[in-house]
Design a protein around this nucleic acid. Structure first.
Lengths: 206, 206
DNA sequence: CGGGTGCTTGAGTTTGCTCAACGGGCGTGG
DNA sequence: CCACGCCCGTTGAGCAAACTCAAGCACCCG
């Protein structure tokens, strides 16, 4: 990539905050490995995860920050960051880059709106099923309806709850229900086997 | 505006669907007057409003549609639409335009994420209070905390419920509660007087 | 005046939350 | 090596918030 010269590779431990790091928040970064969560909170401590960024997503907010979301590494993360100045200079000389930023922003907007439907209108079981499908789909974008798929959840129960607008207890109960119904298997609480993606989808409410 | 030559002014009756209209969905439009709602639905009929666009917002999805959201006029609407071809041609010769599209997409993304927090973590009363503040803020962006403000809601109770992820009965009950508490006055069900925006804000959860 | 639509209110039910106890995995220290 | 504590997740019991269903009211229009 043309940015190679000015970019720096960074490793973030799980749980690391990405705000505070001026170079990252002012500039832009490319996630090479791992999962970053975007969080919004209320004054009384309630929190909602408003976005998940997987490799190889871009990360950051060009032009005017103040986005009021904070970012945190959900897993160990490796990213390739470059300063704000570099990015803006590159945009000036290459409309192509701005175009790809626009495409990513529109994709994130679609994802956010999909999730608004989940948060506003789905019940707890449907939300958990939707979440599992989201992760399964990230692990294998070409997933077939009848194909068994296994993966490790990149998030704790608390993080899942904060993503789904539920409590940890409710998340746990719905996972148990899916397990008892034979739709999934749960091992070591992080490792999930989806026996039947098509059936899981029927639980997700569409 | 430079687009004046190829643009056409359109009037939409309240309730009119904007999908189906190829010229609008493929292209882009400028809302001159009124409110447009963006809707997502589940197969069983549940619906969630995932965005509200007020004048003078842009409307539409450049490059690759298939956004799976449908748009509908919440009030009578006047918009100025231009065909996809025109827009794309203009973008080619003016990076400035793409830049403003990016800015609008980022703004909509922020709004969507704000609302995810509301949908995922606020209770019914907080949601209704947040909605009233949202509308009040649209009516008067320079609203002061102690200033009384009156306005007509641009949406029915059903639409408000679909926006807040609630039922119409719950919306009605929370409005009653705010009225009984003296925070607002309700006249003819559409006309709202906010006696004390600062106090309303304390009900909105932040 | 009758019917329709949209809103409000009430009663009962359901869903998910709260609070609390318990259990397994893992790291630390004896 | 085992004992202990800690963290995370699970499970249970009771409760509270929002939903469902149903009735009633105001307004509009024919």
């Amino acid at each position: 990539m043309a940015l190679a010269k000015t970019s720096t590779k960074k490793r973030l431990e799980i749980g690391a905050e990405l705000v505070g790091d001026a170079e990252i928040i002012d500039g832009y970064a490319n996630i090479l490995f791992g999962v970053v969560k975007l969080i919004k909170g209320l004054p009384d401590g309630r929190e909602q995860i408003v976005g998940l960024q997987f490799a190889p997503d871009f990360l950051g907010r060009p032009f005017q920050t103040e986005s009021a979301v904070s970012a945190q590494a959900a897993t160990n993360v490796v990213l390739c960051s470059f300063p704000k100045r570099t990015l803006e200079a590159l945009i000036k000389q290459s409309p192509q880059l701005e175009h790809s930023l626009l495409k990513q922003a529109l994709r994130e907007l679609d994802e956010a709106r999909d999730w608004m439907l989940t948060l506003g209108r789905k019940n707890a079981l449907e939300r958990v099923a939707s979440y599992l499908l989201l992760i399964a789909n990230y692990i294998d974008p070409a997933l077939r309806p009848q194909e068994v798929i296994a993966f490790d959840l990149p998030m704790s129960r608390l993080e899942i709850a904060d993503f789904l607008g539920l409590t940890i207890e409710t998340v746990s109960r719905q996972l148990t229900k899916l397990r008892v119904d034979g739709v999934i298997q749960v091992r070591q609480s992080r490792h999930i086997v989806v026996n039947n993606p098509a059936r899981l989808k029927t639980f997700s409410g569409g």
